Each structure stands twice: as C-alpha cells, then as structure tokens.
Deep mutational scan, measured.
Amino acid sequence: RNRTTFSTFQLEELEKVFQKTHYPDVYAREQLALRTDLTEARVQVWFQNRRAKWRK
C-alpha cells in the first residue's frame, strides 16, 4: 500500500477533531471518514500517528 497523501482540507478536519479529543470513538471516526473521503482505517491510523507526534 502506498503512503496516503492528505489534502489541506482533510488535515484541517482531522486536526479540528484532534483538538477536541485525542481518542475519537468509532462513530466520530466514521463521520470524519465520510466527510474527508477517507476510510475509517486511515482515520484511525492518522490518530495513532498524531498522538505519537503529540507525545514527543
């Protein structure tokens, strides 16, 4: 699988949710996936990576 390149819009949407919660539930991830045209799995992995970055 190739690396996912996120658009500016997608990143803004993802970051917006991350500001509210670092652990969105499955429903929130599904909604975000639909809004950003990503799969729920991509959204989940983005949050994992974003939390790792945030901890540093």
Rank of each mutant, 00 (worst) to 15 (best):
R1Q: 03
D25I: 07
V26G: 13
Q19T: 15
R3K: 12
V45R: 06
K53Q: 10
L11H: 03
A28G: 05
Q44H: 13
R42G: 10
V26L: 09
K53I: 13
Y27W: 11
K56M: 03
R51I: 09
R1W: 11
D25G: 06
Q48N: 10
V17W: 04
E40W: 03
Q44M: 11
A52V: 13
T5C: 15
F47V: 02
R51T: 01
E13V: 03
L32W: 07
L38K: 08
E30P: 02
T4R: 11
A52I: 08
W54T: 11
V26C: 11
R50P: 01
P24E: 05
F6Q: 08
D25W: 00
R1N: 15
F18Y: 04
K20D: 06
T39G: 04
F6E: 14
F6T: 05
D25S: 06
L14Q: 00
R35G: 05
E13A: 04
W46N: 07
L34A: 14
R29T: 13
E40F: 09
R3E: 12
E13L: 03
R51Y: 02
R35Y: 06
L11V: 11
Q48E: 09
N49A: 12
L34Y: 04
R55Y: 08
R3G: 13
N2V: 05
A28K: 03
R51M: 05
Q10L: 03
W46H: 00
Q19P: 05
Q31S: 11
T8L: 08
Y27V: 14
Q48F: 04
D37A: 15
S7N: 10
Q19W: 04
E13Q: 06
Q10D: 02
R3Q: 14
R35F: 05
V45S: 13
Y27R: 12
R1P: 04
Y27L: 12
Q19R: 11
E30T: 10
N2K: 11
Q44K: 09
S7D: 10
V43T: 02
P24C: 01
R1G: 15
T21V: 07
R3L: 13
T39D: 13
V43M: 05
A41M: 09
F47T: 03
W54F: 13
T39V: 05
H22N: 04
A33T: 06
K16W: 05
Q31H: 03
R42V: 14
F6C: 05
N49M: 15
T4N: 12
F9L: 10
Q48C: 09
V26D: 12
R42M: 13
A41Y: 10
K20R: 10
F6Y: 14
T4W: 07
A52W: 07
K20T: 09
R55G: 13
R51H: 03
T39A: 07
L11N: 12
T39M: 03
R1L: 11
L34Q: 15
L11C: 07
L14N: 02
W46G: 02
T21M: 03
E12K: 05
E12I: 03
T36C: 13
F18V: 02
R50Y: 01
V45Q: 14
A33C: 14
S7M: 05
Q48M: 08
F18E: 02
Q48V: 11
V43S: 00
K20Q: 08
L32K: 04
R3P: 15
V45P: 00
T21Q: 09
E40S: 08
E15A: 02
Y27Q: 15
R29D: 01
E13N: 04
Q19E: 15
L11W: 06
Y27D: 14
F6M: 11
E12Q: 11
Q44F: 10
R3T: 15
R55S: 08
A41K: 08
Y27G: 10
F9G: 15
A41G: 10
F18S: 03
T5K: 15
F47Y: 03
Y23E: 07
R55Q: 10
T21Y: 04
K16F: 05
